[in-house]
Computed example of a mutant assay.
Amino acid sequence: MGDKPPGFRGSPSWIGCVEASLCLAHFGGPQGRLCHVPRGMGLQGELDRLYSHFSEGGGPVMVGGDADARAKALLGVCLGPRTEAHVLILDPHCWGAPENPTELQAAGWVGWQEVATAFDPNSFYNLCLTSRLEQQQQKQQHTLDC
């Protein structure tokens, strides 16, 4: 895309959520909306936004942080009756086609984790909330029809 120095291509360097969002836009993928959370403990304040995102049909949420270098993809949110909350996390390093969904869970690639323990309270996080491509195309088509 031209946003990285020439030596970046083929290097073991990683991109973050901001770059992932730029890639989605550049290559015509689903729209990626960025949300910056200054500290992991602030994710509690974003749970309603994440819940709405998923309940309205939003796609996976890419997560990257600074002190917490473990990449994550959020696939869902479960809000409990009190303050407990869990997120369905997929390790983005997972690849290949599993025989069945339980295989992913048994191998530790995907699972529900409590928000309080899944995120480092001192790390900042960038979230890239993706739309489903079909939804984006439908919205564009509707705009053209009006």
Rank of each mutant, 00 (worst) to 15 (best):
L133N: 05
C146D: 10
P5F: 13
G32L: 07
R33D: 12
A118M: 04
Y51D: 10
G76A: 15
A107V: 10
G108T: 12
N126E: 11
A97P: 01
G29S: 02
A85C: 08
S123D: 08
G58L: 04
L79T: 00
T130W: 05
L47F: 04
D91N: 15
V63C: 12
L43N: 01
Q140E: 14
L88Y: 14
D91A: 03
G65H: 00
H36C: 03
V37S: 02
G7M: 05
Y125A: 00
D68S: 05
D68Q: 03
A97W: 10
V110F: 02
D91M: 04
P5D: 12
N100E: 13
D3L: 13
P5E: 07
E46M: 11
A106M: 08
A25G: 06
G80Q: 08
H26A: 15
S131A: 14
P6N: 11
V63L: 12
G7E: 14
S52E: 15
A116M: 07
E103W: 13
D3G: 01
E19Y: 08
H93C: 02
N122E: 15
F27P: 00
R70P: 01
S131Y: 06
A106L: 09
C94E: 13
H142I: 13
L24F: 09
A116P: 05
C17M: 12
Q31P: 00
K72W: 08
T130V: 07
R49S: 09
G96L: 09
M1W: 09
P101K: 10
H53V: 07
D66W: 09
A118I: 07
M41W: 13
T102I: 08
C35A: 09
S11F: 03
G28V: 05
P30V: 03
L22R: 12
A118E: 04
Y125L: 01
C78Q: 13
T143W: 06
A25P: 00
C146N: 12
D120C: 14
H53L: 08
S11D: 02
E84H: 12
P5Y: 10
K4H: 04
L90Q: 10
C146H: 14
L79K: 12
K139E: 15
G40H: 07
G65P: 02
P60L: 14
W109E: 04
D66V: 08
C94D: 00
G108V: 14
L34Y: 05
A85Y: 10
V87R: 02
S13D: 12
A106E: 13
W14N: 11
G10Q: 05
